[in-house]
């Protein structure tokens, strides 16, 4: 008996006005699995990621998380989102709160954790991502890489079943990318279920169990990293890889 997959995306379509950004997407993510979504910009990979915790509403199709279909905006959806961590390209740390307050807000407000306990756990998480010394600083006082690590700690603080990463390193200066990827690799190694939208092929190769290649709103190829990078099946994947790896 294999356990039911954590995330099931079935026949999902998404339109922005006349723009058809997701076309008949089917995707499952098993527990403990890391799925990396790659593809050229405009291929719909970020939108797919945002649809999974319903920051975007799908036009048709169905998404379930742990067997529960995504509800409409409201309390039930809020409960469900609490179990799905999200890391954004632009960090989106709460500008008026310190790093530690950013990390403890969710546990206190949503999980109703006591302040002291939330604080203690928050500090541990900050230590784990290597910025415990920045706990009382404001986001604007941190470098991009530090901010993104704080954002990861904030998401982890909720004890999520699933972590979504929406291009987490795209807004970073090159020298900061590694510090963030290191944290992500560690998470993957610990068996965290992750969906990662990224351009970091190195990360995809080393941490992903499966790679989904998207183009024109469709998942064009779905394979293990070895197979995808060494023997891409489609011309579009070959074309994409040749451009990426050329430099």
């Amino acid at each position: 008996m294999t356990p039911a997959p954590l995330v099931v995306v079935e026949k999902v379509n998404k339109h922005f006005g006349d723009l058809h950004v997701l076309r008949d997407i089917d995707l499952t993510v098993d527990r403990g699995e890391v799925v990396v979504v790659i593809g050229p910009s405009g291929s719909g990979k970020s939108t797919l990621c945002r649809c999974i915790n319903r920051l975007e509403r799908v036009t048709s199709g169905r998404i379930t998380i742990d067997g529960v279909a995504l509800p409409e905006e409201g309390k039930a959806l809020a409960r469900l989102r609490a179990d799905v961590g999200m890391v954004f390209q632009s960090f989106n740390l709460f500008a008026h709160k310190t790093i530690l307050q950013n990390v403890t807000l969710g546990p206190i407000k949503v999980r109703k954790l006591a302040k002291d306990e939330a604080r203690e756990r928050g500090l541990k998480l900050l230590e784990r991502v290597g910025i415990a010394d920045k706990a009382d600083r404001y986001p604007a006082e941190l470098s991009g890489g530090q901010q993104q690590r704080a954002a990861i700690a904030r998401a982890l603080a909720m004890g999520p079943k699933l972590m979504l990463f929406d291009e987490p390193t795209s807004a970073l200066d090159p020298e900061m990318i590694k510090e963030v990827l290191d944290v992500m690799v560690e998470l993957a190694a610990e068996g965290t279920t992750m969906v990662v939208v990224t351009h970091e092929m190195g990360f995809a190769r080393s941490a992903a169990r499966r790679v989904a290649f998207m183009d024109g709103g469709r998942i064009v190829e779905m394979a293990s990293p070895e197979q995808f990078f060494d023997q891409p099946q489609t011309d579009r994947a070959k074309d994409f890889l040749s451009k990426i790896l050329a430099h």
């Binding site: 915790n53 920051l55 905006e73 989102r81 609490a82 179990d83 999200m86 954004f88 740390l93 969710g106």
Partner: peptide
């Protein structure tokens, strides 16, 4: 993005 991050944490609208 601030509101999106808050929603992602599971905060309700009033929270």
């Amino acid at each position: 993005g601030q509101a999106e991050a808050a929603r992602s944490l599971g905060l309700t609208f009033s929270q």
